[in-house]
Design a protein around this nucleic acid. Structure first.
Length: 276
DNA sequence: GTCCATGTTCTTTA
DNA sequence: CTAAAGAACATGGA
């Protein structure tokens, strides 16, 4: 499910319920979703207070009263929801946490298991190697990071060490908004293009958060509801459909092994690029 | 049976 | 050596 807007929506939904709560019960249904392998998450969590919850990139960061932190990453199909304890526990639910005084339990379900639970010590930095947060990033910071790679801008935006939180949907949507050809080598973008791209990323991400994310299939907010931003996608998953701006059929190509959607007319190569 | 999927990491290639 | 491309991971839906 998870790109920045979806993860932010989950955090927004969980925060009011779990922050300030004490963990009363933990069940780990399979140990291979926990990293490092062998970590005793049940022992480490029982009786602890959740003092903070926040998002960093696509990671959901829990902070305990001990100062320890752990991260839940939703991978491709993960869901983190609050459900009544008597509600049916769906298949692929790997981790369930109950809190004192809360008539809801936190459930982590992830059929494909690309996600998981990462336990961090007090000193172990959660955001080591992660790029800047796109919503508060200055375009010059992005420009500096694009300067030293010959990869396409599309592929580069998916690199979490360059910018944190952007995935396949919002990379395509942001490049459309900025009118930039996804095949453009990152280092060839002009300052003007990077400025437009930075603005586009912030605009698209904010709109998507307001719409509570995009639900294509698995994504659910903490209360189990779906997002609505998918209905406002301009290019993602719209191959062959007319561009909402110019009616040209949307193209689909594969870049870095990921499907990439764009309008060949609105996102012309060379339009405003550094090398022309 | 085939192909594809909102992600990341390890391996191979250039 | 490094950067970039490719494969792998696991499950389910079209």
């Amino acid at each position: 499910m998870p790109e920045l807007p979806e993860v932010q929506t989950v955090v927004n939904g969980l925060g009011p319920y779990v922050v300030g709560r004490r963990v009363s019960r933990v069940r780990l249904e399979r140990t291979d979703v926990v990293f490092p392998p062998g970590t005793d998450v049940v022992g480490a969590l029982i009786g602890r207070l959740i003092v903070a919850l926040h998002r960093r990139g696509k990671k959901i960061v829990f902070t305990l009263d001990t100062g320890d932190r752990f991260v839940i990453h939703l991978g491709m199909s993960g869901q983190l929801t609050l459900d009544p304890p008597d509600a049916t526990v769906p298949k692929h639910t790997h981790f369930v946490v109950d809190f004192a005084g809360l008539p809801l339990q936190l459930r982590f379900k992830d059929p494909r298991r690309f996600g998981g639970i990462w336990w961090h010590g007090i000193d172990d930095s959660v955001d080591a190697a992660l790029g800047p947060e796109p919503l508060s990033m200055n375009w010059r910071v992005l420009a500096r990071r694009l300067d030293n790679t010959r990869r396409s801008i599309k592929t580069t935006l998916l690199d979490q060490t360059v910018v944190a939180g952007i995935g396949n949907i919002y990379a395509d949507e942001s490049l459309f908004e900025a009118r930039i050809d996804p095949l453009t080598p990152a280092y060839e973008l002009s300052d003007e293009q990077v400025r437009r791209l930075t603005r586009a990323i912030k605009l698209i991400l904010r709109r998507a958060i307001r719409a509570k994310g995009s639900t294509l299939r698995d994504y659910r907010a903490a209360d189990g509801s779906t997002g609505s931003f998918q209905s406002r996608h301009r290019v993602y998953d719209r191959a062959g459909l007319p561009c909402r701006t110019c009616k040209t059929p949307i193209s689909r190509i594969v870049l870095g092994g990921r499907s990439t959607h764009f309008c060949a007319t609105c996102q012309r190569p060379s339009y405003g690029s550094r090398l022309g």
